[in-house]
């Protein structure tokens, strides 16, 4: 069992939880993720790691409540226990294997979309600790949905914000801000790391391709076990089928078949929406008499 040490709402429907998980904390590296179960009957939910502290033995996760399982997870409070917390899963970001000299000369831009800000943070923090000041773009729907700004500011080189409605920072989508930085502000990058909704990563990859900048994306596919056993997470990268959980989650964004990945992400959507409806109806005290909840 894994204790919830801290729980905070970062933005509407976005929560941060700090979990006591010493083994995971000791082994976690930037780019990796965990799988969590909120209850004995619960799903295995893949979630990104937003921070970790080997000494304290803690790992932080950020959860957006979108389905029945993430909602259940977020009903748990500080001091309560998670039955399962497995990780770190996936391969760490490739830059952690760079030799220090190469690493220091790198010009890296991170592009975080929405809750994707969470997994970007440990990467930027790691680089900061290794003497690299990476630039970061954080995109969100509006000012209210921006998360982890203070933490990010402390470790990033330049922090840029883009919101769809212009309520904070640049008004527009993140690919437009990338263009703005490169075309008009004289910025140069040799690596872009984009993490956020699939559709955002697709457009970022398309943008950077035009500039010829190597681009890494982190895929949030469906998953069951997260150790290579089920193949639910398979994606096509460079024409080859690979497993996100053991071969990823980070891949060359210019090689990923995003359209297929997005379609596959929706495989259980109808079933999930049904489950949400049933849960809402039950919560409202409605008892189905014709068996639709079966």
């Amino acid at each position: 069992m894994y204790k919830i040490l801290q729980k905070r709402e970062l933005a509407p429907n976005i929560w941060m939880m700090e979990i006591e998980a010493p083994r995971v904390a000791r082994s976690a590296r930037p780019g990796q993720f965990v799988i969590v179960r909120a209850s004995e009957n619960g799903e295995r939910i893949p979630l990104t790691i937003s921070d970790y502290d080997a000494e304290r033995g803690t790992v932080s996760i950020v959860i957006q409540t979108i389905g029945v399982s993430t909602r259940k997870l977020c009903t748990l409070n500080e001091g309560e226990l998670l039955p399962d917390f497995v990780g770190p899963l996936g391969r760490p970001s490739e830059f952690i294997h760079d030799d220090p000299a190469t690493l220091c000369s790198r010009k890296i831009l991170f592009v975080a979309g929405g809750v994707g800000t969470a997994p970007v943070y440990p990467q930027v923090k790691w680089l900061h600790e290794h003497g690299v000041q990476a630039d970061v773009i954080v995109g969100a729907k509006n000012k209210e949905m921006l998360i982890m700004q203070e933490q990010m500011k402390a470790v990033a080189g330049n922090l840029y914000v883009a919101t769809d409605d212009g309520s904070a920072g640049f008004k527009g989508m993140v690919p437009d801000l990338i263009k703005e930085l490169i075309d008009h502000q004289g910025k140069q990058y040799d690596l872009v790391v984009a993490i956020g909704p699939m559709i955002m990563m697709k457009f970022v990859a398309a943008t950077t391709k035009a500039y010829g900048i190597r681009t890494i994306v982190s895929l949030n596919t469906l998953m069951v076990d997260g150790t290579g056993m089920c193949g639910a997470c398979r994606v096509t990268v460079g024409g080859k089928t690979v497993f996100t959980c053991v071969d990823g989650p980070e891949f060359d964004g210019h090689q990923v078949d995003f359209d297929e990945a997005m379609r596959r992400q929706g495989m259980y959507r109808t079933l999930e929406q049904r489950a949400i409806k049933i849960a809402e109806e039950r919560a409202a005290g409605h008892v189905c008499k014709i068996g639709l909840d079966k």
Partner: peptide, 10 residues
């Protein structure tokens, strides 16, 4: 000990 992926957790 469940939830322990050898090759990842340890």
């Amino acid at each position: 000990e469940t939830d322990t992926v050898v090759g990842r957790t340890v």
